[in-house]
């Protein structure tokens, strides 16, 4: 049984179809990269998978008992966050919010879990620091720790490498790979960096306002569309 399945799904903005013909499924432990040019519907699809947007036709099904409160999400950063006064610990802990339900305060276990994810991402030294004073790469690690606090199954990342220098981006890639391999968390990631996408991902979904390719990375590399897109990158 797949975690998420799209059946003939399409998403629209104010009547205009943003992306359509989506037929794919993501199984436990997969590492799916969603690629495509700007405006090809990648971010719209992520919103749809998070159920922030309902499909204009077709359906998005969740399986394996996946609940909305069990999806970890790493959104694109907003301008407001750049000068937000909050400590790293406060931000990471807020990932546990949906689990605390109507309880007004966090339990000890929530705090312990937040500390554990802070440790595993190697940002212990930053725990008490102010979020706005961190570098871009450090901020992404903090948001990744928060996303991990929210999920044990599925992590959605929307262009997590935007604005990072190549070194910080590679470190973050390795971190995400470790989360996928060691912790067995399924990854769905939107990325512009096609070279790294085919290096790390097990599956590729290529969008061109409709589904142009879905399948294993090896098949994508041999396909015409994959070769063309990768060739385009190299030039």
């Amino acid at each position: 049984m797949a975690l998420i399945t799209c059946r003939d799904a399409a998403f629209a903005y104010e009547g205009h179809t943003a992306v359509s013909g989506l037929n794919f499924s993501v199984s436990c432990g997969d590492y799916l990269c969603v690629v495509g040019e700007n405006g090809s519907g990648k971010s719209t699809l992520i919103k749809g998978l998070l159920r922030l947007k309902s499909p204009s036709s077709g359906s998005v099904l969740t399986g394996d008992g996946l609940k909305p409160s069990e999806i970890g999400y790493l959104p694109q950063q907003t301008a407001a966050q750049k000068d937000f006064p909050a400590s790293v610990f406060e931000v990471v802990l807020s990932g546990r919010l949906s689990r605390s339900g109507l309880r007004p305060f966090y339990a000890k276990a929530d705090k312990a879990l937040a500390r554990q994810h802070i440790r595993s991402l190697g940002i212990e030294a930053l725990q008490g620091r102010c979020y706005r004073e961190l570098s871009g790469g450090q901020q992404q690690r903090v948001l990744l720790a928060r996303a991990l606090c929210a999920t044990q199954k599925l992590l959605l990342l929307d262009e997590p490498f935007a604005g990072l220098d190549p070194l910080a981006a590679q470190e973050l890639y390795r971190e995400i790979e470790r989360i996928n391999r060691k912790d067995g968390i399924t990854i769905i990631m939107v990325s512009h960096d096609i070279a790294s996408a085919v290096k790390y991902a097990s599956h590729i979904l290529h969008l061109k306002t409709e589904q142009a390719f879905f399948g294993e990375t090896q098949r994508y590399l041999k396909s015409a569309i994959g070769a063309a897109f990768l060739g385009g990158e190299a030039q």
Binding site: L50, R51, L52, P68, S69, I71, G72, Y73, P75, T78, Q81, F84, A86, E90, V91, S94, G95, L97, S98, S100, P104, F105, Y106, R146, A147, A150, L156
Partner: peptide
């Protein structure tokens, strides 16, 4: 805590 989460990152809070 809810006000913090909604203030810091509304889309994350909503998504989770």
């Amino acid at each position: 805590h809810k006000i913090f989460a909604v203030t810091f990152d509304e889309s994350f809070a909503q998504a989770t």
